[in-house]
Nucleic acid binder design. Structure first.
Lengths: 349, 349
DNA sequence: TTGAAAGCGGTACCAA
DNA sequence: TTGGTACCGCTTTCAA
């Protein structure tokens, strides 16, 4: 920049203004500067600009696991929205570890990002207090916290659980089990939905139809397999099972098939998440669509709004509607065999 | 920082040195400063530090598609390695669009990152020249460019293609087709491997056993389906098919099953990539493991080395060995029915 | 319309 | 061991 100024006999201020196309610059000067910029292939140093303006044009995204298709799709959505507005995305993975997540978040805070988007693995809200102290806006995604009035984008988990369970009931299942997830909003919500659906159907299940979450198994598939094996040993055994998420459901299905039983004739299975290979599985898996890409995009847009806001705004709660996607794994009755929808692409919110 | 200095009656320089635990600071002073830092919960502004030192402690990762499990795993590996060394990761997605990728890269260059890791969608090497001009180190991942002496981490694609094809032949296939990928190093390499394997087996296939890549279909699964339909109409039709990647293979399998044929009895199928749900597919899919996580970690380490290097070092080529993972989709003979390996977790390089 | 000077929040160098 | 000063590259304010 200095060079350009010197070469052209103008000041750095002038160059700076041209770069940000300020209006108060003579047309001729502007052209000369622009020309020289092109020639030198000059690009302003965004680090310096960030220091001077206090805006980094960078947003942080913290997810528990990038490889989980749900978070990958969220990340993609966020990234697409931010890119269009000139923002970059710093990605941090917490590996489902609250401690690690805290460290990552504090590193991001030190970087003075403009905002944070977090799918949190925390148990407490302490970390979020810290973020608030730094006065940088943040958006929670997928998992939320009771009593924390924060911006949130996600799906109505209770409704998701209810939809899934009701679907099983409508498919003729009378002994419906649930393989539950961790004690976070998603897991608890879906569990609550399961219970509500059973209540509405006037069904009562024995407590061991919800196998306890074994501590510290991060591998959802293995968890599903283990839990399903337990369920199959019960008498009477379940004839339908709603699984916390799709990887868990895949594990459960594998356990069922290994036991020599049929899906859905002996046991119907439904998952949650509707990941994109569900249709091609050994038995195509019914699931609840979570609109992951939409969540990503909405979170991105909300974030941009927050950054743009002059004054702190009231936290916004964006709840998307989960949708049933019925496939072979629950096709037990005639009307269930003609599924409501077979593709996942028709989501459009 | 200024505040701390004032509060304690020392200079900012002293505080700065304590922060980076310089040795030449009195123990007592240091303790006082550290105490105050804790009290204020002070964190140095990394933007400012970056401007002063010229090091951002940030690495950029550019991938064609985050949702593709291969790149998600690479990203995870990279992220894990960088985190341990205090680096952050800026993620950019090119959506397989060379133009977009260029834009993203130039934005990253403007941010003065310490290094770039790129799984490129480019057709030419022009972009890389630009990067070189900026004198920031970069590592290519997965896809490489003939005649570009750049750092590279990936798998030997030709060997991958050869392994896959040879496996089909050993399973008793005599009419082996190939659903090819795009004209980038991965696609071309696997195609070359396919040809080499056939040569070694003394087999000759008609040209239409390699359906042409239809332009601009980014959906691998659809591409696999379409290509497979064409193959099934040939006379004689193939009894084995090697697919460019796993999504393509899934599409191909779906086409085969829809045509009322059996896998592997009528047509054996093998993919490439060994994504983590391969085992749970309608027909568990044989594949070539690409060690995506290892690629990510190796690329991360190599990047850190490059950043640490005093002088520019000679580009390093890290070629990992692809491995066959045989599953049901190719289990046609007795010895193939007892697969070499059934899991993907034993990769360990 | 243009530019000089003063920062942004740190680090580096060298003298005290 | 400590600290003054210049500077990283850009923006902002205000005077010319």
């Amino acid at each position: 920049m200095k060079d350009i100024a010197r070469d052209l006999g103008v000041s750095v201020v002038t160059v700076s203004k041209v770069l940000r196309n300020h209006t108060d610059i003579g047309e001729e000067t502007r052209q000369r500067v622009l020309k020289r910029i092109k020639e030198l292939n000059y690009q302003p140093n965004l680090t310096a600009r960030a220091l001077a303006t206090g805006k980094t044009y960078t947003v942080g995204l913290v997810v528990p696991d990038l490889v989980h298709p749900f978070f990958a799709e969220v990340a993609k959505g966020v990234s697409a929205v931010l890119r269009k507005s000139g923002y970059s995305l710093i990605l941090a993975s917490s590996e489902e570890d609250p401690k690690l997540e805290q460290q990552e978040i504090s590193r991001l805070l030190a970087r003075r990002l403009d905002a944070l988007i977090i799918a949190s693995a925390q148990w407490t809200v302490e970390t979020f207090r810290t973020i608030e102290e730094h006065k940088i806006p943040y958006v929670l995604v997928d998992r939320r916290f009771a009593g924390l009035p924060a911006n949130f984008v996600g799906v109505d988990d209770e409704l998701a659980g209810e939809l899934a369970t009701t679907h099983l009931v409508q498919c003729g299942c009378r002994r419906v089990a649930h393989i539950r997830g961790p004690e976070v909003s998603t897991g608890l919500g879906r569990l609550a939905g399961y219970r509500r659906a059973l209540e509405q159907a006037n069904l009562k299940m024995p407590p061991d139809y919800i196998p306890p979450a074994t501590a510290g198994d991060d591998d959802s598939e293995m968890r599903g397999r283990t839990a399903m094996r337990m369920l199959l040993q019960l008498d009477p055994r379940p004839d339908g099972v709603f699984c916390y998420n799709d990887p868990t459901a895949i594990g459960a299905m594998n356990a069922i098939l290994e036991a020599g039983l049929r899906i859905p004739e002996d046991v119907a299975v439904i998952g949650c998440g509707n990941v994109h290979y569900d249709e091609s599985l050994r038995v195509p898996l019914s699931s609840i669509d979570q609109q992951s890409a939409v969540i990503g995009r909405k979170a991105g847009r909300l974030t941009l709004n927050l950054i743009g806001a002059k004054r702190p705004v009231r936290p916004k709660l964006i709840l998307l509607e989960p949708r049933l996607v019925a496939r072979a794994s629950t096709a037990r009755l005639l009307d269930a065999a003609r599924p409501l929808t077979g593709s996942r692409s028709e989501s459009s919110v």
